[in-house]
Amino acid sequence: MKNILIFILLIVIHTSYSQSVTISTTKYTVNQLVNQVLVNSPCVLSTNVISRTGTAFGSSNGIGYFENTNTAFPFSSGVVLSTGDVTKIPAPNTTILSDGFPAWSGDSDLEANLLSQSGITMNSVNASYIEFDFQPKTPSFDFYFLFASEEYGTSQCNFSDAFAFLLKDVTAGGSTVNLAVIPGTMIPVSVETIRNNTNNSNCPSAYPSYFGAFNGPGFGPAINFNGQTISMIASAASLDVTHVYRIKLVIADGGNNTGYDSAIFLEANSFNIGQDVLGLDYTTANKAAICPGNTLPTLSASGLDPATTFVWKKNGIVFSPTQTGKTLNLNTITPLVSSGIHTYSVTYKEPECIAVTDEIII
């Protein structure tokens, strides 16, 4: 009986790690990928959605929708943009992805930003992008992404493939900012800037804490790429909620070389341009945990319509007396916050919109 149980356990473990992502290029239009998959907010609509990929040049489709059940990959679903054929992304990792005709052009916006913001010269080819306008409901927004590439290993010592999340204030004009950078720096994410020299001893490691995995052959990984970063966050702050912004999500092969494809995976429902008004959790994972005795934050759901109504809860229970303001000062509410992990939430309803609940961990 013990041997049978061990065998069953091994089957379960193998199954959980052997699933591949699934890719669809037809389940959603690009507009739906933005407004139903990435944003998926009942009160926010992204407009002027445009895209381009290899199909415009008689080549591969580099834009698709993915789903995943493999625990070795952090996202369950979302949007993927590739410099090659997205239908070849599913595991096993047994082939080198090098799709895309030379006629499939690169992206001048990506090249210009890498040069102006990071001092990097790039000659791009095989670019895929989605861009759209939005008006944020809060002064900051964020979303989660993962970068994967066939360049990990053999070609990770030099800058080649690149991607960017290019944000521009349409109302005010001004410069374009790339949000796809290593936290706390202006360094763009690539195989050169995030790597582990265990996979190539010809160059030192670079920000290895952001490197996720070097994928071996077979069905262990969820994707058919040699390596991938951990789940990372792109964010922007000090936005003007009265302005319209435009963001371009773009990736391209570098060095005018169509070989060794790369991809960016964008987590579904994570593109926060209004639905998550409370911001990031105050946790050790976010390097924002609060030490005992320190001042607690004042939670704020500001930036919404002046006629918005609010109801605050702690651990799912409405405060008594009811807290209905747009802010909640954790230093003054009773009972006072004790040590431990606490979840606070606010349910807000703007005029002519359904109620939305956002929560934050302290």
Rank of each mutant, 00 (worst) to 15 (best):
K168F: 06
V181R: 11
N123E: 13
K137S: 03
T185Y: 03
I120L: 14
G174E: 02
V177H: 10
Q117A: 11
F141Q: 12
V189F: 06
Q117Y: 04
Y129E: 11
G119N: 06
F165M: 07
F147V: 00
T138A: 04
A148G: 10
A127M: 06
A127C: 05
G184C: 09
F163H: 10
A162C: 11
V125M: 12
Q156H: 05
L167S: 09
V189T: 10
A162H: 08
R195I: 04
S140Q: 05
F141V: 02
T171Y: 13
T185A: 09
N196C: 09
S118V: 06
L115Y: 08
L167A: 12
F165K: 03
I194M: 09
S128E: 09
D109E: 15
G173R: 01
G174W: 13
P136G: 10
A162Y: 04
Y144R: 01
E150Q: 12
E151D: 14
F134Q: 07
N178F: 05
D169V: 05
Y144E: 12
E150C: 03
D142C: 00
S116N: 14
Y129I: 04
I187H: 05
N196W: 11
V189S: 04
T171R: 06
M122S: 11
N126V: 05
L167H: 05
K168T: 15
L166C: 07
D142F: 13
V191P: 07
S149T: 00
N126R: 02
D107G: 03
L179T: 07
E151S: 15
T154D: 11
V181L: 12
T171M: 02
S155E: 14
L114R: 00
Y129D: 03
G173T: 02
A112M: 15
S124C: 10
V177C: 10
F163Q: 03
V177A: 10
V189L: 11
T154F: 15
S190F: 05
S155G: 04
E111C: 08
F163K: 02
S175Y: 12
F143C: 00
I120T: 00
G174R: 01
A172L: 15
F163I: 05
F163L: 12
D107V: 02
E131V: 04
